[in-house]
């Protein structure tokens, strides 16, 4: 090698005073010339080098956040919570989308077919979406990291609530948007309180049994109740037919609101039960 970096060039390189071609020339040379590399190393600011290394290590060692996680961080969720919610959504987004799509078809049927039956079908089916969402939110059958998470220190109740919210939060507004297309006025939203009440009740039952069993049991009771009431409901009008199911009476709505509140209280009191597998 006949050309080496001299002191003047090194001074200018160090102070960033060389033109881009000169900078590139010095850098190319030092990668293959040990003595010049030694000269450059001898001038290095150790503190600056440590800072650059730390910044590089942080960049390389920080897993990139997914789209969902970035969105959640934008709306104010903390990094840890956003990561847990993001992991949940990555498992369940296809399920959520399938449920919403199914309800969309029900809405279509309600608008073109029998109004009473279509409206009843939508109002009975809609609360099942968040209810089943609770079932798939957490548990050994649905979370591959369940045992690892159970043996960790993050409270199980917090994981359950974060995951439940992660699943129900996109579902409920989507169902509400579908409700707008139903020609039934405020009655089209009568599913909301039963949905929230049943979801909270399944969480409360989840302190006694597996969440999927709790959700399945409540879904069955809900459908049986709907079936029995609607079988004898008057068919003179769509509204009259739908209100044949007690859950869609004002008193029934109040009952489900109360059920939700009491259930959430029970969940708070028994939250330690989410920290042990069954």
């Amino acid at each position: 090698m006949t050309w080496h970096v001299d002191t003047t060039q090194l001074d200018r390189y160090e102070s960033d005073a060389l033109p881009p071609s000169g900078m590139a020339s010095v850098e190319m040379h030092v990668t293959s010339c040990e003595s010049c590399r030694g000269q450059v190393a001898g001038r290095a600011d150790d503190a600056a080098r440590a800072r650059v290394k730390q910044a590089l290590d942080e960049r390389l060692d920080t897993p990139p956040a997914g789209r969902t996680e970035r969105l959640l961080r934008l709306v104010g969720l903390g990094e840890a919570d956003a990561r847990i919610v993001g992991a949940t959504l990555s498992l369940n987004w296809s399920w959520i989308a399938a449920c919403i799509l199914s309800l969309a078809f029900v809405v279509l049927a309600a608008t073109v077919g029998s109004r009473g039956a279509g409206l009843a079908a939508f109002l009975v089916a809609a609360p099942l979406v968040p209810l089943v969402g609770v079932a798939v939110a957490y548990g050994p059958r649905v979370d591959p990291t369940f045992e690892i998470a159970t043996a960790a220190t993050l409270p199980g109740a917090r994981i359950v609530m974060l995951r439940t919210i992660a699943v129900t939060a996109p579902a409920i507004p989507a169902i509400a948007a579908l409700s707008v297309f139903l020609p039934a006025g405020p009655l089209a939203f009568a599913w909301l309180l039963p949905a929230l009440g049943l979801a909270a009740a399944s969480l409360a039952l989840g302190t006694l049994m597996d969440l999927p069993k709790a959700a399945a049991g409540l879904s069955t009771l809900w459908l049986l109740g709907a079936g029995m009431d609607l079988a004898d409901a008057p068919r003179t009008s769509a509204e009259g037919f739908v209100r044949g199911f007690a859950a869609f009476h004002p008193s029934g709505q109040l009952l489900f609101a109360s059920l939700g509140a009491v259930s959430l209280l029970l969940v708070a009191l028994r939250r330690a039960e989410f920290e042990i597998a069954r």
């Binding site: 897993p63 990094e79 990561r83 847990i84 990555s90 045992e147």
Partner: peptide, 30 residues
């Protein structure tokens, strides 16, 4: 604790998974 059949989020990288478990263990400072 290492379970007999450890489960993973298959779409996660090794780094992302370990970071996730570190969050579960409340190693909260980035």
């Amino acid at each position: 604790y290492q379970p007999q059949e450890p489960g993973f989020f298959q779409s996660f990288t090794v780094l992302a998974f370990l970071d996730y478990v570190a969050i579960l263990k409340e190693l909260s400072g980035r």
